[in-house]
Design a protein around this nucleic acid. Sequence first.
RNA 1: GUCAUGGUAGCUCAACUGGAUAGAGCAUCCGCCUUCUAAGCGGAGGGUUGUGAGUUCAAGUCUCACUCGUGACACCA
Length: 562
Amino acid sequence: MDYKQQVTDALVPTLTDLTPDEIKTKIEQPKTSKQGDLAFPTFTLAKIMHKAPQMIAGEIVEKIDQSNFEKVVAMGPYVNFFFKKAAFSADILGQVLTDGADFGNAKIGEQGQVPIDMSSPNIAKPISMGHLRSTVIGNSLANILTKIDYKPVKINHLGDWGTQFGKLITAYKMWGSEAEVKADPINNLLKYYVRFHKEDVDHPEMDDVARDWFKKLENGDEEALALWKWFRSESLKAFKKIYERLDIDFDSFKGEAFYNDKMDEIVDILESKGLLHESQGAEVVDLSKYDLNPALIKKSDGATLYITRDLAAALYRKRTYDFVQSLYVVGNEQTNHFKQLKAVLKEMGFDWSDQIHHIPFGLITQGGKKLSTRSGRVILLDKVLDDAVALAHKQIEEKNPDLADKDAVADAVGIGAVVFHDLKNERMNNFDFNLEEVVRFEGETGPYVQYAHARAESILRKAGSPAIAADGQALSDPAAWDTLKLLSEFPTIVVRASDEYEPSVVAKYAIHLAKAFNKYYGNTKILVEDDELHARLALVKSVSIVLKEALRLLGVKAPDEM
RNA sequence: GUCAUGGUAGCUCAACUGGAUAGAGCAUCCGCCUUCUAAGCGGAGGGUUGUGAGUUCAAGUCUCACUCGUGACACCA
């Protein structure tokens, strides 16, 4: 049922000065239920009708056919519509119970493929809190897009190429050992890398050695290649453990190295179109007409750069997936890079450059400073997850020591807290890392939402998990009203989240729904035998379904007990 | 310096894209477990929405200027 349309239909006969479309776009949702369920502001009519908005509102109310509403009242300059609660609740509960987890699905994407460049950690470096954002935002967007009928392709564009491998090989050959790397690959490789950057300050000649090693690597030198492969596979093993903890998988691990042999074509195209110019010994594409710095395609020593590989990757993805959109979930400090990328593609004559979207996000800092692997200032994601799970364990021992599957629940709650925390605010917000904040279980957090869901499930168990009819669950209790209305908003929320590429829209919705339900739960006894018992259980079941689905879209689990 | 992005309660953030008395959480204080999970519920205090102008019936939201923070600014990614 389209309630906005219903309100529009009621208004049309009373408002001959406006078209139905104009009326519909002006209808808004009041801030609180006290002001009704939908409202029509009369300000714009004041000019046309030469009357005070309050008067117009009053006149509309007198003329309007109220039969489809509980009541229609004029409140100041607004005409406020109150829905019939019984009919509305039967309608929305019926939809949720019939559709189950599919509630909110939409046929928008028409199966169009959408590669999502996400996570993309660097080989030989640990996954830090910084990578978490790209990983969980990308994963959530993939879930949301799937829900509205797109086909996302999760691509982990590993940082497995570039001059840092020259440095790493150099460092390994100076101080490293096979035994050390085997024992603890990531940490020891990182140790070499950090030491390289420390000593390199006093010994700049090390940079030349490193450059040389990378050059060898690009030319297929056996020793360099063997070391590179080894570093890569060891790192990937460690990464996969973390992805497993987050319950996130990828459709592709094609990293930068994969495009190593696909850059010549890019350079050829650029040359044939006369776009490549020499500047200070390097090969660049001039982008001054886009107000951008030139894109550096080849360094003066002939080696390629980040953007060269990204151009090859963009073209490869277009050919492989014939995408309708191509997303890059990458920090906002790379905004210029993606502007350049799109501009160069456009210059190359690829009109699909418009389908490429950079999904930027804010920086995580510590003590106000940017995290930096080189300087060793890192927050290890594994450690944060460990801390969160340990804290969840502690909470379970305090609050629910008889819980059956403690380990699984502690994982779901601890990791859920961390993931939810990363998704609940707008992408672009920076945030300073604070462990206590991240692993908080009270207030507007992941565990708060999980708890509301677990309470709902608990009631259903206590009720004997009865079969609940999808039809005719009329619930007229005003205490349930806010929860019912929130349930009805879920489909809109999903679409908005995808339009804005904002998982936080879903996270905030989940908090609102959990809050409304907790309030209802705290003030209303659900399990009492009366006429509306089944309708209340239908509400509880619906809340459980939608909370679980909202959390799933965020990549957070919803245990039935906690 | 140029561009980008932000400035809302002590702290962290909302505000349905221009609408009604700017709302939550944390922290502080008070109340609620012999009733479905207290990871909860109810209540109190806390605001010149960075500053100044402008557009509008209406501005946290749009325009301009200024200001502070952060980031990027060709041989890193």
